[in-house]
Design a protein around this nucleic acid. Sequence first.
DNA 1: CAATCTAGTTTAAAAAGTCAAGTGATGTAA
DNA 2: TTACATCACTTGACTTTTTAAACTAGATTG
Lengths: 113, 113
Amino acid sequence: MTTDQPSFCPVYQAIGVLQEKWVLHIVRSLLDGEKGFNELARAVGGCNSATLTQRLEHLETLDIIHKRTEDTHGKLARSIYSLSPAGLELQTVIDAIDTWGRAHLKFAVQKTA
Amino acid sequence: MTTDQPSFCPVYQAIGVLQEKWVLHIVRSLLDGEKGFNELARAVGGCNSATLTQRLEHLETLDIIHKRTEDTHGKLARSIYSLSPAGLELQTVIDAIDTWGRAHLKFAVQKTA
DNA sequence: CAATCTAGTTTAAAAAGTCAAGTGATGTAA
DNA sequence: TTACATCACTTGACTTTTTAAACTAGATTG
């Protein structure tokens, strides 16, 4: 009976968004300050550009990040990605993960793939 | 500069674990109480048995969950999955996600796929 | 002009996840 | 006793996602 109603549960939805590969890494990087595309790719570390593009688009439609094209009067226009107010509030989630990770993973290497 | 050193950073590792598909759902289900395999599958909602088996094995090696085979003196022996102390502490992470989800996703349907 | 930076896109291949069905044990009802 | 359900998975085929690597195209630097 009553398998919990996934689609109507905000937590279930939130988990659905945050468990997408690279999403938490992206958010964490942006909590550190807004970044351009390649800059973000480097900070995230390991995400390839195709996936990153897709993730950024998705996060933008969810209004978690904001994309702005730097207006440098004719000069090289960079795309700048930053967190929206909703995105900024993910700081608490990252902090919780941070605390937990330090307490329970430490140096444990989880290779294997 | 200073791309943060992914492999040595506990937060990076923690994110790596928690962003695996179904992991947060599994933890959330188990925070609600220990469960058998099929029971857990139903609670998680949508994860197939092959993936679930794999995830549970991984989480067990990380000492986040614990598997115990119910000792029912000869009767049908169920496998019972429960959270380890480390796993229980993920409550704070789930809570943070919960709070964030309620505040920022509400009923927003993220269709499209 | 060549190299390097910007922000991506394209491609094919590999990895990850899903699905349906099956296994073998136990238990339950007719 | 037959038959069907539940338990915890396993298997193999299939689909989806992620990947590396190359590539486009404009801007800047020397």
